[in-house]
Simulated assay, not measured.
Amino acid sequence: MTTKTTSLRSVAVCAGAGGLALGLEEAGFEPVLLLDNRTVACDTLRVNRPAWNVLELDLLDFDPADYQSTYDVDLLAAGLPRVKATASVRRTERDDELEVLKATIMLMHGIRPRALLIENVPDLVTKPAYEPIREYVAKELTHLGYSLHWFVLNAVDFGVAQDRKQGVLVALDAALPNSFTAPGASVTRPRTVGEALGPSMAARGWPQSVTWAAQADRPAPTLVGGSWNRGGADLGPTGSKRAWARMGVDGGTVADDVPGPDFVWDPSIGRPGMMPLTVHQAAALQGFPPDWIFAGRKTAQYRQVGHASPPPVGRALGDALKAALASSPRTAGNL
């Protein structure tokens, strides 16, 4: 007779395309509620995980008292919009990204999970300009009885073929033994773009795919989702586009399909001789599984991919959190 293991329970806010939630699910965290304010992101979550309880709502309007499932959860997880260096907790005018961060911290009062996980820009952890925000967060969470762990991870250290640094905050109920350790690298060498995308480049019979993959011998630069309010999809700012051009990739747009047998790859003639990546190739560079579906039109799909947290990093963080929480499991009365 086997004993069923009780899943750890999580609430995910600003869930986006589900990268962080997917990684946490692989580590054993069952999401009881996922919240996002974009219809297309909620559609993505629902089409991939029909059993997930997805709520389309602005975080600033969310009241956990209306959702009994949020009580007694183990983890509140948030892949938040990128806080700007100019943000200040004392500013009188509204800063949307900072307001979302503050709303997440305030949720800790109502949900009181055993742990909090926030993923954001690495500068939030390392730069002096963000110190007032870190002080605000520390004051609120230590008052509630949580211990804080700030650190930076790079997705390339977890098998993701992309140089993508992420700033992370983990807060644990201070009643837990101080056993949390930030995850260490899970690979011994970086995965290259050629390794990640070589098979897809060959899928339609492009004869130069092997040659291209051999010279794409480094991780990708950080994918950038860009603004939801303007512009089309591209792979990032000017510096990123130059890095892509050195691998013979047109970073100025996103393709509908991979190269076919008649495409002639010749980077010496500029963009016409280079191929752009598809949405699903970008998703592969983020570490999403190949069967993960992104809702919406091409630009909206790419925005979701570019803004996502890589699932392998979420898995590593989930494993580290699970180990820390296992040192003091929930009592039967709280299950």
Rank of each mutant, 00 (worst) to 15 (best):
V313T: 03
N154T: 02
D256I: 11
N37R: 14
T253M: 14
V156S: 08
P207L: 01
F294T: 00
G79F: 07
T6Y: 13
R246N: 14
A203E: 14
V187K: 01
A17F: 06
L325S: 06
P207A: 05
L55C: 13
P183F: 13
G318R: 03
F62K: 09
K127I: 01
I111Q: 03
P132F: 14
G236F: 05
E119I: 02
A41H: 01
L75V: 02
T6K: 15
L75S: 05
G314E: 00
P113V: 05
L169N: 05
T2R: 12
D66P: 06
P261N: 07
T181C: 09
V279T: 07
V11Q: 10
L117R: 00
H143T: 08
M201Y: 10
A182Q: 14
P329G: 06
M275T: 04
G18V: 08
V32I: 05
R91P: 11
S227E: 13
E119S: 03
V249P: 00
V47F: 06
L45V: 03
A171S: 07
L144Y: 07
V193I: 12
R114N: 12
V121N: 10
L117C: 04
T238Y: 12
L34F: 01
G28P: 01
G273V: 00
S88C: 10
L107N: 02
Q215L: 09
M274F: 08
V279S: 03
D257E: 13
G231H: 04
A51L: 14
A214F: 04
T181L: 12
A282T: 10
R114G: 11
S309N: 11
V47E: 08
R9P: 06
P267S: 10
A87L: 04
K165G: 15
T181F: 11
G239H: 04
G205I: 10
D291H: 15
D72E: 13
G205Q: 07
R204A: 08
A174K: 15
C14R: 01
L117S: 00
R303H: 01
I293T: 15
P259C: 06
L285V: 05
S240P: 02
V160W: 08
A175F: 10
W206E: 04
T44Y: 05
H149E: 11
G194Y: 03
L223E: 01
N229E: 15
T278P: 11
R315P: 00
V187I: 05
P177G: 04
A323L: 13
L20M: 10
S69E: 15
T253V: 12
L148A: 07
V121E: 03
T6D: 15
G273S: 12
D66M: 10
K165S: 12
D234Y: 06
G225S: 12
R9E: 09
V11W: 08
Q162H: 12
R204C: 02
P199I: 00
I118Y: 07
Q162S: 11
A21Y: 02
V89D: 12
V264D: 13
V137S: 09
K102V: 06
F288N: 00
L169V: 05
S186C: 01
